[in-house]
Write a protein that binds this DNA or RNA. Sequence first.
DNA 1: ACTCATTGCGTCAATATGACACAATGTAAT
DNA 2: ATTACATTGTGTCATATTGACGCAATGAGT
Lengths: 257, 257
Amino acid sequence: MTKNEAISALMNEGQHWFLPSLSVDCVILGFHDNQLKVLLLKHRHLNIWGLPGGFIYKDEPADIAADRVLKERTGLNKIFLQQFHVFAEPDRYNKEFHLNDLKKDGIDVSTDHWILQRFVTIGYYALVEYSKVSPAPDTLSEKCMWWEIHKTPALMLDHKRILDKALEVLRMQLNFQPIGFNLLPEKFTMPELQKLYETILDKKLDRRNFQRKILGFQILRRLAETKKGVAHKAPYLYSFDLKKYHRALKEGLNGGW
Amino acid sequence: MTKNEAISALMNEGQHWFLPSLSVDCVILGFHDNQLKVLLLKHRHLNIWGLPGGFIYKDEPADIAADRVLKERTGLNKIFLQQFHVFAEPDRYNKEFHLNDLKKDGIDVSTDHWILQRFVTIGYYALVEYSKVSPAPDTLSEKCMWWEIHKTPALMLDHKRILDKALEVLRMQLNFQPIGFNLLPEKFTMPELQKLYETILDKKLDRRNFQRKILGFQILRRLAETKKGVAHKAPYLYSFDLKKYHRALKEGLNGGW
DNA sequence: ACTCATTGCGTCAATATGACACAATGTAAT
DNA sequence: ATTACATTGTGTCATATTGACGCAATGAGT
């Protein structure tokens, strides 16, 4: 099936396949070159980017739909994927935008076409290991690539707001949940982990205090090896203690009360 | 318009008014007699209770829909109301349940009626001042009353799960946000505030340490008066310092990182 | 006047946190 | 080889926060 055929099928049959009014959008974050990155798609003819998103089959759980979208875009599945917010303002969805988008593709639809109706979208975010992802464009897009989190291009509709909200929630989670398992390779160094935290928090942390605190969580295991081929003193390699990591995920880190 | 007329109108016209596939459900919590309570509705003919919920008008933001539902059920509006989770499993919605419900009301609908389709619901929770609420049943229900949070009756569909999730999120929020302003009367005592925390957390707290910690947040003002007509030593009255309270809401309490 | 549960206000040790010092290490320049 | 230097591993110290608990004051009920 060519891309155009796929689009035709979607346009003509979509309303029979999918739950009306609802979509999912995924904020897929990866970490590379000591930078937090987000996976974006470029629409076929418009010079605008957007988050990977999709619709929910009529008998499909929303979480599975998000998983499916993620799989289609990154080749990854079964990863840490979490619903974080619903975006349900009536004006978030711009009829004109899609109408123009489709026209440029040579597709003319009436203004009451299903894809032009108001959509409420469920925002999901995923933390993935950058190196394992093979960005792959889908039916409606021509490019799929990583962008540095603070240097994203203009995004369609309210996708910038969705991205910002994902980061806000992520920062909150950092306060009571461990993070990083899905963002880092299996073996990593303390400075890499610290840089990840600093990037998410957008804030410098003291190297020594960071180490003390993170080790205090008891979710890391220091390996016997050090990182080779790196400038300056070779740092130790660490890996997550998965058992303790998952326990911490469930029970929280600090407690608070 | 009688209740039956209202139901007829809803059944016949609903699909033109509301966004398909979507609903909102509200977990409305109040505090009374040193107990956390939740507002539940009893369906008209079934001996089963449920959370107050409703649909979203086609041009209405979901937050406003939740506000509207809340207003209709409690007489309150403009209060702390927060989306906390989306429930989107296909099997959460039980066609048979509604079919039976309607039959007992003398309403026969075909199995493809709009109200029998799959619905994804957005869960909202609200913390309200118990004494200001006037529980009022709506079109589809015959009773509306407070229930102790740990002694709720059987709930329809997945409403028990929604309630539990709301409490889980609320407990998390307690770790980095102040709470209580909407749950307590304007003037309250320290033991009352502590009891609120203990109820939400389902855990005993040390009286003296609790006071020290909560005062440390700097969101309380101690009044010159003490609570009268109470057994034993008269405790001081406190009220929230709204300015600082709202600042703490925005900026968080502890920071963590 | 006495009892007693409860409140207000402490103390003290243990623990956590923030700021910073210093030696060890490995690459790169000389 | 030697040296320079950025970076890492480890530790210190003062301060802040936390958990556990003591004790006197209060005020309704007897």
